[in-house]
Design a protein around this nucleic acid. Structure first.
Lengths: 338, 338
DNA sequence: ATCCATACTGCAATCGATTGCAATAACGAA
DNA sequence: TTCGTTATTGCAATCGATTGCAGTATGGAT
């Protein structure tokens, strides 16, 4: 393995000069710079990131922390997660950062101590802010650069990037209403930040349509298809004669509910229309295809990264909620005449 | 930030002794050790991993590289991926390693140089060995510790952990045969290592059943539901009068195919039975529920980690293929009397 | 009393870069 | 000719640990 010292010797300059030359520091004579660079190239020299880290106190690494739901032990809508993770990875690579991944199921290490103080990472990206998390709040009182994917409260003490969950949900439910639905259930756990917004959007839509809210129609449901299936069987079947629409806080839940309904002989969408949220890969390929709200994963990932880097540059970064897109498919395609 | 020097001073010993004491080196007097440890605890001292890395030339970090399919730009069956990634993360954490994640879409950096030589990682886990990959072969000629998730050729020059794809596929197809299917199509891209095994299993089953192989029944299909849908429409519809079974190399493909068939008015499973591979979350919740082959993600992840650590300890690690489990569901539940 | 093995402890070098500051050379101005 | 600039370069300290080797003290054996 070549070291800077070797390169310096080969170029017949001091290590200091070699170091500067490699980073194209203009204080070094141009010819010298070129010579050093050329030699480094020739011998395939790369600076040792560990040594550099130790000296500069920067790691050029970002830690991405994926929070899991304490109850379901499941990440907030898996497929969505993998997508955004991919985007983040690409963006970070592109900016010259490595990505340290941590899936935090239990409340484990203290992030600041472990990642920042120990110089394992220069900043944090936290995905899946679930129920109100103590640790995130705590971070915001420190000087740790970090961004969160989730829901903005409007007056966050930290930078949040997320989807316009509320208006997206409103659009979906309004669409159900436009399809003639008058009794629409909500499936999801509104104690979860993002879901809460979707729940509010659901209410918004009902209110706008002059439809009454009905507590019986609000089912606290985990993120899984399984729970969507169960809760539908247990709590929705009795309401069936009246019920004519379901808005599920995630596609997984929606698909679970749809399964239960189909087994029970309910016609979707004729008797009951369904809409979900996320647009997971399967949504377009189930029967009937699922109407859903698609999040902008790509811009989400990019924004997370750029806002984090902004913070690391000492600038401030505002929270931002991205527009979503309603995809209407068969699961909500009812005749108007109800 | 506390440094080892601070702790040493507080404990009134030299840095050397402090360093040894913290690692419980028995050469240090027990009382001294305890004293140092106690003080370190009290002041919440943690060794700086960067400094340690520089000195010991180990990073206590493993790089996980996810290979994407060059064509579909998609990872080998996403949902499966996230699961195994989670397991690996947990295992590594448990063993005191950090996890550097890299999603390599393009042929980017030279892994050995970037991760190993630069001491960014002590070992590599490569997931998604797709079509024969030059880079993996190359790695095996170096002394880099690494393991691969994928298919074993039986005479690998490196350590592979994977599923018993061949026998799993055979079980699935034999099951279709037992359900009365006589004309079974295969959907998948057998140029991909793992899929090739599933393809062979498909052939095994047909052969055992005394059924003829038919090139028309073998459709090269990408990993996506979309391609499953398209290829089914384009190439399977003409064969429909005869065709009575499909074995898809992944659940995504199977669901795409099922969608196409249902739209076309084909009764699943009565007219045509379907089986997939992976058991993604949605498989149990589509209609009809999908018969599939479940991989042992948990043991897979654990094995990958343990075999890698074994290698890093200088031991050799054998390849290993894990048993899979056939889950029979409605999509293949036909009456026997055909 | 002398010597040696044993048990600890600490000095100083080392890992591989980066950087503040001093040193040198070269050049034009006075 | 002398002196202040400017342009370049290098010395040496530093980041925070780990470790080979040497040094000291203690106790037991002779």
């Amino acid at each position: 393995m070549m070291t800077l010292a070797d390169i310096a010797a080969l170029a017949e300059v001091s290590e200091s000069t070699a170091s500067r030359a490699l980073r194209d520091n203009p204080v070094v004579n141009k010819e010298t710079r070129l010579k050093v660079q050329q030699i480094a190239q020739q011998y395939q020299f790369n600076v040792n990131p560990t040594a550099r880290s130790l000296r500069t106190q920067k790691s050029y690494t970002i830690a991405v922390i994926i929070l899991f739901d304490a109850k379901s032990q499941q990440a907030i809508s898996d497929p969505f997660l993998l997508e955004i993770l991919g985007v983040i990875a690409d963006e970070l690579t592109h900016k010259g950062y490595d990505m340290l991944l941590s899936t935090s199921k239990t409340k484990d290490k203290d992030w600041k101590t472990y990642y920042i103080d120990a110089k394992r990472a220069d900043g944090l990206i936290i995905i899946g802010q679930g129920e109100h998390d103590q640790r995130i709040e705590q971070l915001s009182h420190s000087k740790v650069p970090f961004v969160v994917w989730g829901a903005s409260s409007g007056h966050d003490s930290f930078t949040v990037v997320g989807s316009q969950n509320r208006s997206g949900a409103e659009a979906a439910v309004s669409h159900l209403v436009a399809q003639g639905c008058k009794h629409i259930a909500f499936l999801g756990d509104y104690r979860h930040n993002e879901i809460e917004q979707r729940y509010l959007g659901y209410q918004d839509a009902l209110q706008k349509a002059g439809l009454a809210l009905n507590a019986d129609y609000e089912l606290i449901t985990d993120f899984t298809a399984q729970d969507g299936y169960l809760k539908t069987q247990q709590q929705l079947f009795p309401l069936l004669p009246e019920l004519d629409g379901i808005f599920a806080a995630s596609d997984a839940i929606a698909l679970g509910a749809m399964k239960a309904l189909q087994e029970h002989g309910v016609q979707v969408p004729q008797q009951l229309a369904i809409a979900g949220f996320d647009d997971i890969a399967m949504s377009a390929y189930c029967s009937p295809a699922l109407t859903t709200v698609k999040q902008d994963t790509i811009n989400g990932g990019k924004l997370l990264v750029s806002k984090l880097l902004q913070q690391m540059d000492g600038e401030q970064a505002e929270s931002e909620l991205l527009p979503v897109r309603l995809l209407t498919r068969q699961s909500s395609a009812r005749d108007r005449r109800v």
